[in-house]
Design a protein around this nucleic acid. Structure first.
Length: 261
DNA sequence: AACACATTCAACCGCTTTCCT
DNA sequence: GAGGAAAGCGGTTGAATGTGT
């Protein structure tokens, strides 16, 4: 049995949102909060699919969204984060307060990729999204997707390396704000539970998101504090952290280390 | 002015991941 | 562990708008 569609397409409004629809959605979310997107349209009196409502809210109506042109500091950070992370737009957007993944993706595709090509800089190709066969979850040794939650990089021998999925960074920040210094310091356990991964030319590394947030002082990063010095520092520390993790990690012992947790 | 082509970006689509039972 | 629902993500589409001829 296949999964049910996110909404029946009969009688559902599509295309650009009207100001009335925006108002209905905004006022509903303001009084009831985000979430339950599937039932939201009906409750809010909208003839839209929940997915569409979520997207509209996330990309356009949310009050913390920053409108207007992307500044040179932001542009620079996008370019450099893209170099590190590839097309992980939501991760990149998480580093640019008030910007959405859709906005950054569009900006990249319409401005930056062309600009960089013009300058003769190499653009990293899109990370291919693995096509899952329905049975892939039952046969983890074949066609293992790179983006699955627990990933396995298969070498040319029997060694298996499990690579945790990239983690959304923004969701963790408020948790860390309440952590004591002691808790913040003892991040060894966390390192194994919430890692980011990235790949570049076949090399894989690990990045602990909790450690990442601490090291970068992301509790200072939010609420929004936009200046070029901060963005510069953010990038530098990000870059250094990635580099040091690459050097430190012992890929072949990683699966064993998981067993010790 | 009229047309063709290029660019932009909101919205959609299909898929994966996460969460819950 | 399996299965389904909900949420999230990244690639793509297409209408609106801009620009060149």
């Amino acid at each position: 049995m296949g999964r049910s569609p996110c909404c029946s397409k009969v009688g559902i409004h599509r295309g650009p949102w009207t100001s009335r629809e925006d108002a209905l959605l905004t006022s509903y979310i303001q009084s009831h909060g985000e979430g339950n997107w599937r039932s939201l349209p009906k409750l809010a009196g909208l003839l839209r699919c929940g997915k569409s409502c979520r997207l509209r809210w996330m990309n356009y109506l949310r009050p913390d969204i920053k409108r207007g042109n992307i500044g040179p500091e932001e542009e620079d950070l996008i370019i450099r984060l893209h170099r590190l992370l590839g097309n992980r737009w939501s991760l990149i957007a998480g580093r640019l307060p008030g910007r959405t993944d859709n906005e950054i993706k569009n900006y990249w595709n319409s401005h930056l990729s062309k600009k960089l090509k013009k300058q003769g800089l190499v653009i990293r190709e899109a990370t291919p999204r693995p096509k899952h066969s329905k049975s892939s979850s039952n046969n983890k040794n074949q066609g293992v997707p790179i983006s699955s939650r627990t990933e396995m990089i298969r070498g040319n021998n029997e060694n298996k390396i499990y690579v945790p999925k990239p983690t959304r960074l923004t969701a963790r920040i408020h948790v860390m704000e309440n952590s004591s210094e002691e808790e913040k310091g003892s991040s060894d356990e966390m390192e194994l539970s919430a890692n980011n991964y990235w790949s570049d030319g076949g090399e894989y590394g690990f990045l602990d998101t909790n450690q990442f947030n601490l090291d970068l002082g992301l509790d200072q990063f939010l609420p929004v504090q936009q200046d070029s010095v901060m963005l510069e520092r953010l990038y530098d520390e990000y870059s250094q952290l990635l580099q040091s993790e690459v050097n430190d990690i012992n890929l072949f012992s990683y699966d064993q280390s998981l067993l010790m947790v």
